[in-house]
Structures are given as structure tokens and as C-alpha cells.
Write a protein that binds this DNA or RNA. Sequence first.
DNA 1: GCTTGACCTGGAGTGCACTCCAGCCCGTAA
DNA 2: TTACGGGCTGGAGTGCACTCCAGGTCAAGC
Lengths: 158, 158
Amino acid sequence: MRIGDLADKSGLSTDTLRYYEKIGLIPRPLRDAGGRRVYDRTILRWIEFLDRLKATGMGIRDRLRYAELRTLGSSSLADRRSMLETHRDKVAEDIVRLTETLHVLDDKVDLYRRMEAGETVDPAFESCARTEHAAPPNREKSPHDRRTGARPRADNEA
Amino acid sequence: MRIGDLADKSGLSTDTLRYYEKIGLIPRPLRDAGGRRVYDRTILRWIEFLDRLKATGMGIRDRLRYAELRTLGSSSLADRRSMLETHRDKVAEDIVRLTETLHVLDDKVDLYRRMEAGETVDPAFESCARTEHAAPPNREKSPHDRRTGARPRADNEA
DNA sequence: GCTTGACCTGGAGTGCACTCCAGCCCGTAA
DNA sequence: TTACGGGCTGGAGTGCACTCCAGGTCAAGC
């Protein structure tokens, strides 16, 4: 399989494949007589997994580190497992956050729909209903640490 | 509230706040006699919502567009709702994808743990068990479109 | 009055993750 | 044999999203 075929099958561009090779994310393939890259079909599994790590927010540094460990073979199993466990936890957190936001969005869409219909909005949502320059709600918000991801329950800024 | 306080409360740096203002993500605040920015507490709700959009993958372009619509007041309600609905669907898709990956990671961690224990791996997982340069599995993979996000079921590249 | 710390502006610099390009080579089909 | 498509390399360019900095102003406390 040549680079163009791999590009088709993996969904990455040939440029990206060469770039990944350059930085060490994917192993250097064999070359044919003409100096062109020849790929083994197994590379697809690896690329797909990399893609999955990327799509779930693992940065290139960590992907690189993982790729590096992978080349070390079974001696790096524990380290790789540890990386995956860490990432797994991050993914689980992201799912929580996304789910939370899904609800916020649904609520907001709902609110907008009612406002579009000219409906009077429930007083409980008054601060949401005022659109652009709502009066400050009488409620103090404590500073929260961005690192921990701990933050007060979302409210609708309308 | 001055910019430093807002930075503390929002979790953004003063630089980022000024940057957001420059590009139009947050409205220009009033200034005090000394020319310093003075923020209304309501800005926090807006920043928090922006942060939520960002954390769920909405790019700066769209956040900008949304911010722009917001300044137009209630006449832009339908457009804003439409944007949120679109984003909502994207978030829902992401949740599916993340959940899928969570399982893949769990499986992989499990596999590694068993491999570390020197356990013989179930023949059904043989292609996973071969670590670095597994023989190609006898199974053709069709090229898939990256745009649609449609992709064949993940398998473990081990 | 002086120091200190927060704030101001404009602009340069950073890191990520590609993406594009010029100028070249190679193999095959017409 | 020549045209063409695909591939090669090294390096420049892009877009996002900040982040940092120099060189200045301003207000409050000692």
C-alpha cells in the first residue's frame, strides 16, 4: 500500500501522514525500489487508535510519548497502561461536562423558543429572560480554580 | 469590578480578557476616571457560557458570531437558537464518540493488565495481543469519510 | 513625595497541528 | 517518447488561541 492509498483508507492527507512520520507518531515504512513509502495494512489500526486519542483530546505530546513507548515493545506495557488510564479518566470527565452542557443548551434552546413565541417567561428564569444587559443577580460567585475544573453550576446567561 | 477581579472570578487571565474584548467576544466595559475597565457582575454569566461553548468544541469564529448576534438583541433570537441547536447536535455526537472511546480504553487497559500478568490472551483477541508488528488481519477496510465522522467499529491495535 | 501594584496600549512571540508549495524523480499508458 | 499521475524532500505559511512584553499611567498607602 502506498501513501495515497493509506491516505484514502485512513482519512488523513498524505501531507499529514508524512508529518506524523517526521515527528515520530507513525513508524518509518519500508520503501520500494523507487524510494516510495510502502505501508503494511496494520498501520491502519495504529492510525485509527491515534485518531481516537486525538479526537478525545489527547495532545500531540502525549500521543508522541505513547508512540515512543509503543516502539519499546512489551517492556513499556505498564507505562502505556498508566497513560491510558489517565486518559480514560479525562475522557470520563469530559463526558460529564459535555452532558451537562447538553442540558444547558437544551434549556437555552427551549427558552429562546418560548421567547420567540412571545411567551412571558417564568419569573424563576427572569434573569435569563432579560437578554443583553440583565441586572446582576444577587448572588456572590466565588472564584474557582480553572485547573481543577471545579466550577459552580452553570446558569443561563441568556 | 476591575479586570483583575474578573480574572480571578472567571478563571481567565487579564490578557485573555483584553484579548476577548479586542476580538469582540465580550463587550467593551465602562472605564473609571483613570481609564481602567470596570465590569458589571453580569459579564460573568456570559463568560461562563462562552467558556462552556469553547470547552465543548465551538471554535472562536462561531463564538464570535454568536456574540455578535447577541449584541443585536431579541431580533437575533431565532439565529442564536439555530446556532445552539446545531452545536447541541455536535455535542451529542461527541458524547457518543467519547463514550465509545471510553470503552475502547477500558478494554485496552484490561488487555494490558492481563498481558502484564503474563496471561495467555484469548485467541479471539490474538490480533490485539501481538504488540508491535502484528500480521495484517485478513479483513478489508473501506475508506471512510472523515467529515461525516462515520467510521468502522474501533478495533484494538494493541 | 515616593513607592508599589494594578492597570493601560500596541505589538511581538508561542505552541499546536497541520497545510501548502517548489522543484524534483519515477513508472506506466498512449 | 512523452505526457501524466503520484510520490519525494525541505521548508515556508496558516489559523487558532492565547501569552508575553516594553514602556507607560494612575491611585492609594506610608
